[in-house]
Amino acid sequence: MNDLDVSELSFQNRGPYTFTIKSGEVAGLTGASGAGKSLLLRAIADLDPHDGEIRVGEMRCNATPAQLWRKNVGLLLAESCWWFDDVGDHFQTSEKTPLVTLEKLGFDRDVFSWQVSRLSTGEKQRLAVARLLQNNPRALLLDEPTASLDAASIERTENILVDYCRQHQVPLLWVSHDHTQLDRVADCRFNLDDNAVLTQQEGSCHGG
């Protein structure tokens, strides 16, 4: 089992939140801007201080070195950052073969020699997905991952992410404003209201 178990998670006067996302399950998360969706994802990725326990399978956040935890709990932000000149330098040289992923995202091997400064926002975001997946995360947290993409790219990216989730049986938490997107990808839904209270909407989400 590889469930994402969040129990009594609290941070910055929010929470406590307790919920579970089963392995291979896509949970949607909606809520008004400012309700703290991004903060919740940051806390789960251990990027912000928090109380409570988070587990993925047998792996406990507090008992795992931070960098290892973040490799395993992959957080994709709405806007990706790049710091080297070439795309390829952002990928690990030893295993520059997320080729299947890259192809599915609409790139070929040449992309590694591209300059970051010449990428469009959409290209950056799709490459950010490939960059994230090369860590082979055991749980995925997506913060409006397709906000900057056009319709064709949105579909491709959704498929990649959902395929990864099913194939590797990882729990996936998907933040989106777009309810039709969540209709397509999510098995169940959470909502975070203005008072930062998390409720289960429908489907088979566990907890709330």
Partner: peptide, 22 residues
Amino acid sequence: QQRQVVEQRLLLGETSDEASAE
């Protein structure tokens, strides 16, 4: 100024030393 880049690097599993080396 570059906190977003630094946090992105941390999110990809770099240590604080690696993410801030440059």
